[in-house]
Design a protein around this nucleic acid. Structure first.
Length: 207
DNA sequence: AACGCTATCAACCGCTCTCGC
DNA sequence: AGCGAGAGCGGTTGATAGCGT
């Protein structure tokens, strides 16, 4: 008969066991990890603990202004796609982003968070956001995109947050993250439709 | 000091998706 | 095509820290 699996908070010694096991055997195959590591934890529990707490390069502590702003904007675009949002915040986990949203940001309207922008910039920003393609609803402002050159250029863009893509002179965007928004849309399309993204765009925008 | 309320966040749960057979 | 296992995701829960009365 198998021992009853432990639940609740992880002890430091459990963390150490899991960390050592994953470091020597590699990430993944959590069922095996749970069985062979000696931990009396479920595979799910091990995976979650590793992913949200133990894996390298986890960034903990206060969200920066930039991170907060980015979360607000991405949430506006993507909704509760926490893993997708977290994927754009190096070192942050989906759970952390979700918690942060629910405790810090959900209460107040996202509009309040960007009050540092002057009214003119804000007006223009809203205008631009409205013209952003939204995959989930397939609502597309036909006039927002006049050519498909960006599709080809996607393969040449470095998407890391440390190296924002250079925007052409005619870019209508006013601050760093606004400039990202169409690219993020492209991310969504690519992540959702993979190699069919181009085809989908053609169907949706130019049909 | 004791109590109640609220905020925070780690962890669990249920569901869906993907993949191999 | 159908099934089962494993992995991942988002919603929710519950422990506890902090604060006010």
């Amino acid at each position: 008969m198998e021992a009853k699996l432990k639940k609740g908070f992880w002890k430091p010694e459990e963390d150490m066991i899991l960390k050592k096991y994953v470091e020597s055997h590699g990430e993944g195959n959590w069922t095996v990890v749970a069985k062979k590591s000696g931990l009396v934890r479920s595979a799910k529990s091990c995976r979650l603990r590793w992913k949200n707490y133990l894996r390298p390069n986890i960034k903990r502590g206060m969200m920066s202004e930039d991170e907060r702003d980015l979360i607000i904007r991405l949430h506006k675009l993507l909704g509760n796609r926490w893993s997708l949002i977290a994927g754009r915040l190096p070192g942050r986990t989906d759970n952390e982003v979700k918690n942060y949203w629910n405790t810090h940001l959900n209460k107040r309207a996202s509009r309040d968070q960007i009050k540092h922008l002057d009214s003119k910039t804000e007006e223009k920003r809203e205008e631009n956001l409205e013209t952003t393609m939204t995959v989930s609803t397939n609502v597309v402002e036909r006039d927002a995109v006049t050519d498909t050159s960006w599709v080809e250029s996607l393969t040449n863009v470095d998407y890391s947050m440390n190296m924002p893509p250079l925007l052409p002179d005619y870019s209508p965007f006013f601050n760093n993250y606004d400039a990202f928004m169409p690219i993020f849309d492209n991310f969504v399309l690519l992540e959702t439709f993979g190699s069919r993204a181009d085809e989908i765009i053609q169907e949706t925008v130019f049909m």
